[in-house]
Nucleic acid binder design. Structure first.
Lengths: 231, 231
DNA sequence: TATTTCTGTGTACGATAGACGCAGTTCTGC
DNA sequence: GCAGAACTGCGTCTATCGTACACAGAAATA
């Protein structure tokens, strides 16, 4: 049942006592996870199989199970490692949250598979909690209640995820923007049913502009609440 | 390569010409997709296999391939069908977007697997586009540019998705709130590294409150832009 | 009635995650 | 120094997955 949760928690958080007897382990959790990250970055998440990861390292797949209880735990480890540590922030709460969101986006863009993996109930890893901590701490100076601070961070991360997702959908450097043309074809065929979307899509924007727009709106909304409460 | 995209587009949008000869089809796309939806709702997305879906209908798995080119297309069909049609909205742009977001949330909550499926580049279905259309149309009265309207909708849907995800993580009626206790255990053990999160988590909120908070902030932020621009 | 077309099905293949046991290696206690 | 314990990596096996392919039967057309 929740053995997976326990396994994730143990692999992500648990201290791994160095074994006293037996051969020295030829691999390490870090090494395995980074191999999986490289594989997922270059060839996509489906390419990450025990076979491929082990093969990339020059070992058999079963050897990986000496380090990781299962694939789910490996993926969780990969995701937390790929997120890295949050940057140090300073300035007003608004400056800090702005910088936080702008630092978070490239992580998701460079590792798009993290979006697919970090949905649904799961055990957060140390790095994921560090990102959360940094954002919540940015609101320490405000009069927001604890739950409100968490909610504010949820709004921010939701927006960053949306932008990262949309950035992954528009292949940018790919000259034959497939989805764009597919959507364009769709609207050309059924555009009469979606007039507002059709006209709105006429002026295109870059993902950067989309990030800026939502970020400014969210921070504006937070600002109105914060200033109205302190007065 | 993009055969999957073409297959998705055809299944989601294409007109299915009735066959002229041969036996009458015993199944229908709708029937198959609804069976998959029921399976995913009750037993989760991994339970949705060709075998299970076909078995649930009393047929063999290969018979499904007479209706659907592959599993990816079936899942895309399930997702669009599970979203349903958006409600009709009226009132100010703010009323409309508020109602829109509150109508969207239960769809994601009732079908949490839709969140997992609708990430990354994909072909939108008719219902998904209808939801988009309804939200963009709600901003028709404003002076926002087309791209800005789309960006605003992106922020909203991002927030709703976040809340739905967090609602799925807190099993509510499940008395032994697993993730809550797991996170609590984690913070009890490593709370010194995450002081802000620890204190913020002391007062708990319901997902409804979280939705309200973010929604109010986002709409406030939009309001400031809209009113400042019209003046 | 002969032919064409479409249906559902059976078989087969490759790839997946993982359980289990075994041989070899290294440290510990005597 | 040496027996045993502990640990590693590996080979084998199973169950399940998606799906390619060929085939028998049914229905509509010629």
């Amino acid at each position: 049942m929740d053995n997976e949760r326990a396994g994730c928690a143990e692999v992500l958080w648990g201290p791994r006592p160095a074994p006293r007897r037996g051969p020295k382990p030829a691999l390490s959790l870090d090494q395995i996870a980074r191999t999986g990250i490289g594989l997922a970055d270059t060839e996509g998440l489906p390419a990450v199989s025990m076979q491929r990861v082990a093969g990339e390292l020059g070992f058999t797949k079963m050897s990986l199970y000496r380090y990781v209880p299962g694939k789910a735990e490996l993926v969780a480890l990969m995701a937390d490692l790929a997120m890295g540590e949050p940057p140090t922030l300073d300035g007003t709460w608004r400056d800090r949250l702005d910088a936080w969101a702008r630092a978070l986006l490239p992580r998701f863009v460079q590792h798009p598979w993290v979006l697919e993996v970090t949905i649904g109930p799961r055990v957060p890893g140390p790095n994921e909690l560090s990102w959360m901590e940094a954002a919540v701490a940015a609101l320490s100076d405000t009069d927001l209640r604890g739950g409100e601070r968490l909610d504010a961070v949820v709004v921010l991360v939701g927006h960053v995820r949306s932008i990262a997702q949309q950035a992954a959908a528009t292949p940018g450097d790919n000259p034959e923007q497939q989805l764009g043309s597919t959507l364009a074809d769709l609207l050309r065929a059924h555009g009469d049913r979606y007039p507002a979307v059709t006209t709105a899509l006429s002026d295109t924007e870059t993902p950067d502009q989309a990030l800026d727009f939502g970020l400014a709106r969210i921070l504006d909304g937070l600002a109105t609440l914060i200033t109205h409460r302190t007065t």
